[in-house]
Amino acid sequence: MSYIKIRNLNFSYKDDEGNPESVLRDLSLDIEKGEYVAVLGHNGSGKSTLAKLLNLVIEDYDYFEGSIEIDGMEISSPNMTEDDVYELRKKVGMVFQNPDNQIVATIVEEDVAFGPENLGLPREEIRARVDEALRIVGMTEYSRHEPHRLSGGQKQRIAIAGIIAMRPDCIIFDESTAMLDPMGRREVVNTMEKLNREDGKTIITITHYMDEAVRADRVIVIDDGRIILDGKPSEIFAKADKIRECGLDLPLCSDLLIKLRERGIRLDGEINTPEQCAETIARSLLK
């Protein structure tokens, strides 16, 4: 059974005049435990709304149809109690775009402890989780620092640690790299990958950076509230026309390889990372 199961989801916001404005249309999706999924889409495609629905942080459920199930729990049912919501949020953590607006405390370790404190865990357990979370994101030496003196990437890693410390099964990154410089982005993406590969967390990353999507196991392209493409990165990025139709750019490597093929150069093999790309080109040159 899949960990996240979305069936025929329709969702609309109220526009300024109070009329429904459709954001997600007839969307069905299954995500397995331990998957590393990148959700792509241009601004306004509905990808952030989808993430917020999964964490129940949408305020207005007037125009909601279909069903969302997480770990066997129907989260869209109207008779969900406050405690059910609380249980769900323990399972699915969320990291947002602006690290400044997620950090609550004035000391790094106290911020990481915020989640576990809310769960009412005993002191020793909180200590252990905070230390572990900081170790996973590689920020142990900054535990007593003030967050506002850290770089963007470091702040975002603190925000991730704050989520890890709650030990969720799944972490959703809602454009968590959009405000970072290239170095900060690399730090955060490496952390995502590590969480998936080493700790077996289900990772859903919502992004419009193609280079990040390439590193996931599965890419989902959303346009105008619908799933347009869903598959392995190498399959998705081979469909250059469709990607461009959705207002997205191809990753640099895929673009290069497609252009080379158009010129009649034969290239075989998996092409996702720059390393694979270089290897493939080198092999064809040696032939």
């Binding site: 942080v57 969320m94 997620q102 370790e109 915020f114 905070v130």
Partner: peptide, 26 residues
């Protein structure tokens, strides 16, 4: 806007007021 985003982030981290909260540093 910051206040709104912070509130969402705090909600996601299971904040629901002082009830049942423990502390790292006592």
């Amino acid at each position: 806007r910051r206040a709104g985003e912070l509130a969402t982030a705090m909600t996601c981290r299971c904040y629901r007021g002082g009830k049942g909260r423990t502390k790292l540093n006592v």
